[in-house]
Amino acid sequence: MIEVVSADRCVQCDVCIKVCPTDVFDRGPDGLPAIARQGDCQTCFMCEAHCPTDALYVAPFSGPAPAGSPHTDEAALAGAFGEYRRIVGWGRGRTPGSRADRNHIFTERLRTAPRNP
């Protein structure tokens, strides 16, 4: 689930509010996106991919991270911000990750692999 909105990184562009398919964010009184309905987060990572300033962190759990978890600690997560967007290949000067897609290998393997009983 979405756990962190970095106030330092966020430029208040509202993209995450707009693109979240389950409408998790509201604009907070300070202008920053607020995680208003965390329970509706489906952990799809789409907000991270779309955030232009790498200001969001989605923890890898379908439920809320426990209090005190490193997954809610912005300082401990510095290297993870923007990781998914970089792999998707979005942002200035990047090559779309789809250019390196190897999905067809697995489609082919599934077509030809022996099945388990």
């Binding site: 789409m46 991919a49 998707v88 290949g89 979005w90 779309p96 990750g97 789809s98 897609d101 190897r102 999905n103 067809h104 489609t107």
Partner: peptide, 10 residues
């Protein structure tokens, strides 16, 4: 190779 798609890009 047009046998796959990545959802976000697509």
């Amino acid at each position: 190779i047009r046998r796959g798609l990545q959802g976000p890009e697509y």
